[in-house]
Design a binder for these strands. Structure first.
Lengths: 336, 336
DNA sequence: TATCGTCGTGAAAAGGTTTTCTTCCTGTCG
DNA sequence: CGACAGGAAGAAAACCTTTTCACGACGATA
């Protein structure tokens, strides 16, 4: 049904090879023939079959982007940033959502490889759980970790210095609340590399005595609901700390809502911080102090790493670490 | 490099055809051969080349999903719902983001078609602007409009009854604010079909005298920033209405923030409604009264329509209209 | 003028599958 | 005991491009 190269060749009365050459501009061809080909192609509404092209060229100009959860605005933002960067290098982006599900992630990522993508950018769902799937795929296709990474997989990584981010938060808290403020961490179980890094950084800071937290961290998921739930438990137990350090903005937003419902005033009664600086952080009441991840730089770095990997596969994997930035808003604006 | 069907055939000492048959289970083959093939395939780590398969079969089992903006949580949710439904029919979903950009949308959607997707679900950026691209693609590939639609394009459509949604809102306002309350619409320019439908429904309700709104609607974009800006202007002009009817939740969230910053109390001083019921609507202060779109039903309907279209192409296009639901929260909880 | 190099074009192979068609073998029925 | 039906496996075509290779013509140089 759809016109093929052959149809164009027939109509323009040239060979298939010539049509291909005209349309791809690979070699010089007689201008007269060229224009004949072009009009023929236009008249037929010819469109190259990308499957056939990919098969022949062994290259599709597609890169896949796998995120753990589109519904998380941080990843939605990341997707957008990455898409933008890849568009510039004339590549098609294939977005894929793992929905925080290991099986689905494996399916999705191997499927991408099977479809012959030239490279994959991946923020794995779990540091350990995603490792085998990631390793398998990385053996077939250039793969770069983005934001999160998987354990024991030799691959380039572009991520943000979580330790630095946590340090920025805690130093800020020490500043506004006084030395060694009592704090509590509400975050996600350290299944993914980012959650782990944040937990560890926080734990280390506690050991170093930067803040005071005798209680164990409250670990659930990176969701609004978990933020709500954690705060509900915390308030029910009584004796809340001076500051709530939330593992990401979603948790913080949930926490703020739960505190508000219970009549606990922020920042007067308790101070709250987030992590990521998603768009809604400014809308929270009060607006959320948080750590902004350099989305654009992250995307740029990851795509750069991937481009280089696709160009010359041999070189040893590199890890790029970007510095985040503290964004101070009203949720920590105590007046002492 | 990657092992091919040929390699498997060589190792199992059978023909290519047999390997293909075993791996696809299309015909009965001798169990002994079958197991030889299977072990050979396993040992080599064989993976079918989906490009080649698609080329030969003229079918890829992929459907594309094009949304106008992933960063809009409504569409993020829609993507998730659709993905889930399509996964069940053993299809791969290709997510694509048009970033509210007509050129990009055209590129993305034609690229999907070029890649041989079996069908496309699309929420077009603009009712008129997307029409030509949509029509072109619809001529090549089964296409179903989802949520939004494009003008004068013959295609199945699964959408939500916006008129009904607006009616629910306005009736509710009349109930809580008294008959013919003074209202003002803040929404997006009627570029896309949904924005237009909401505007028209509102305008009609004004004409019918359900609410009282002499001033022209404030039309910008479906964004938080526009909500903020519109309220800023509104307050600066003085004489705000009793109720703000926002075209979607993002606008409403922006409006709530702006009102809060200016010390205008919601719902006491002014009442605010949204549309979509995105996750963050419950987190707003106060929680937002809004119209919930039946995301799951929408996804189910759209995928059904697409499946049928892909099965028997001939039948005339159908339009399915789903009913939304009013979710009443504190932003309209006036006590009179 | 003869030869070499260059440039532009067509023929054909290759890329990896699926599927039709052919062939061969076995088993059954007449 | 022979012929035919039926099932299973292999050979080859087809899907649509790109790209290598070969070929012929032309211009330039010796």
């Amino acid at each position: 049904m759809a016109p093929t190269l052959r149809d164009v060749a027939l109509r323009a009365e040239v060979s298939l090879a010539t049509v291909s050459r005209v349309l791809n501009g690979s070699t010089r061809v007689d201008p007269a023939l060229a224009s004949r080909v072009r009009t023929a192609a236009d008249e037929l509404g010819y469109r190259a079959n990308l499957l056939a092209r990919g098969l022949r060229r062994q290259r599709t100009d597609i890169v896949g982007l796998v995120v753990p959860q589109v519904a998380n605005p941080f990843f939605a933002g990341l997707m957008q940033a990455v898409s933008r960067h890849l568009q510039q290098s004339a590549r098609t982006v294939l977005l894929a959502d793992a929905e925080e599900d290991l099986d689905l992630e494996r399916q999705v990522i191997t499927r991408l490889a099977d479809h012959g993508v030239d490279g994959i950018l991946c923020a794995p769902v779990s540091e350990r759980g995603s490792a085998v799937a990631a390793a398998e795929v990385a053996a077939r296709v250039p793969l770069v970790f983005l934001d999160r990474s998987a354990a024991d997989v030799e691959a380039d990584t572009a991520s943000v210095d979580q330790r630095c981010g946590i340090a920025l938060v805690l130093e800020h808290l020490a500043e506004v609340c006084g030395a060694r403020p009592s704090t509590r961490l509400i975050s996600a179980s350290p299944v993914d590399s980012v959650a782990r890094a944040r937990c560890e950084a926080y734990a280390d800071a506690v050991i170093e005595g930067l803040v005071d937290d005798a209680a164990p961290p409250l670990l659930g998921e990176f969701t609004v609901d978990w933020g709500r739930e954690a705060v509900a438990g915390l308030i029910a137990d009584g004796a809340p700390p001076q500051a709530l350090v939330c593992g990401n903005d979603l948790i913080a937003l949930g926490a703020l809502a739960a505190l508000g419902e219970r009549g606990v005033r922020v920042p007067d009664d308790i101070v709250v911080t987030g992590f990521d600086d998603v768009g809604f952080a400014t809308l929270a009441v009060p607006p959320l102090t948080t750590v902004r991840q350099p989305l654009d730089a992250l995307a740029a770095t990851a795509t750069d790493l991937l481009e280089q990997r696709m160009a010359n596969g041999g070189c040893p994997p590199r890890c790029e670490l970007l510095r985040p930035e503290l964004i101070i808003r009203a949720s920590t604006a105590v007046t002492r």
